[in-house]
Amino acid sequence: MSRTLKLILAINLLVLAVLTFAYPHLMVGPGKLIPGHQQLDTDCFACHAALTGADSTKCVSCHMPADIGRKTTQGAPVLKPLTSTPFHQELISQDCVACHSDHAGVKRYRLQGYFDHALLKKETNNQCQTCHKSPTDALHKQITGNCAQCHTQQKWTPATFEHNKYFVLDRDHNTTCVTCHVRNDYSRYTCYGCHEHTPANIRREHIDEGIRQFDNCVECHRSADENDIKGGGKGDRGKREAD
């Protein structure tokens, strides 16, 4: 390689190196920064730490976790919050880049606006109503708490609840939830919440039929249809007395 060519090469590469240091956002930055951070365009180390990437401790020096969703970095109240309830205060760790990307080129590979309940502190994670309002439909307005019985934390729907699988709410049983599920506890039920079924009546009727185990009504009765009674069951539950 001739000396002139080497010199031309060296000058060109030097110019590129100078441009890289003068305009890092254009030369090496993976796309534009979000509008709120555009003043940091040429100051990569405002957010990045050498060899370890974007550093959360640098993020929280401006975005104090206690103020996120409540106040701006200038201390003014947030007028149009992005979420109905501030939740950053309840996160188990301050790993900002796990959810946020500032460069357009990086955002393309990340799911934006994704929230995972697993990031919340355990004590907050089970208190759905701290962040969510209960729906106002006929079913939900009777319920307080215990959302996880039917809903998962990944998606509101599909919910697993299908009452007919356990008991058909036909015309005789079209009543409020608390009639059977006392204190909105859907892990239990009672058939004695109704004047029709009293413990004494039920006991007498079953003993007359030779049935000695009748504590779990829905094991045999899946609806009000008296012709649709499933006998037997596990162990001696619902079992008739031997002749």
């Binding site: 890289t20 090496v28 990569c44 990045h48 050498a50 060899l51 370890t52 990437g53 974007a54």
Partner: peptide
């Protein structure tokens, strides 16, 4: 030229990416 430019890209990735 290619190797110097590629090296610049690789160094910048190592410097700014969270490995």
């Amino acid at each position: 030229v290619f190797s110097v430019l590629a090296l610049g890209h690789i160094v910048s990735i190592f410097l700014f990416w969270g490995w």
